[in-house]
């Protein structure tokens, strides 16, 4: 089975690096990481991920803006995006079924198991 391609976009390089290591560790995923929104978009065009893990709060371009650019791209608009957020509490998010405004969210701090679950739930859910 082809390994699923995951793109992680988060301004904290330690997080993207460790998340990449953890996901690759499972043997199911090929992972690329980016620490800038704009960079993430161009990498996505080239990498064609099956799913994007996208941080909401980033200094140069926030996650919402990046997602909007994905929506405009004829190829990338079908790619599922899972947002990572530190602004919402885990239990509040769970109460909303981990969905805000139609997008799936994971609350930080996230553990690997939670991320894996979110990826599995949203892969192939191409819009």
């Amino acid at each position: 089975m082809r390994r699923k391609k995951i793109l992680i976009i988060d301004d904290e390089s330690s997080i993207t690096r460790l998340l990449k290591l953890n996901l690759e560790n499972t043997g199911f995923y090929t992972v690329r990481e980016e620490n800038h929104g704009a960079q993430g978009l161009s990498t996505a065009r080239d990498f064609k991920p099956d799913l994007v893990l996208l941080d909401v709060m980033m200094p140069d371009m926030d996650g919402g803006d990046v997602a909007a650019l994905f929506q405009k791209d004829p190829v990338l608009k079908r790619t599922p995006i899972v947002f990572l957020t530190a602004a919402v509490k885990k239990d509040e998010l769970a109460a909303r079924g981990n969905i805000i405004g139609g997008f799936p969210y994971i609350a930080k701090p996230l553990d690997v198991r939670g991320v894996l679950e979110a990826i599995e739930q949203n892969l192939d859910k191409a819009a």
């Binding site: 460790l18 560790n25 701090p109 996230l110 553990d111 690997v112």
Partner: peptide, 14 residues
């Protein structure tokens, strides 16, 4: 504080 915590959690997991 969440981001550094996040790094530690992922590091420990790894």
């Amino acid at each position: 504080v969440k981001n550094p915590l996040q790094t530690i959690i992922l590091g420990v997991d790894f």
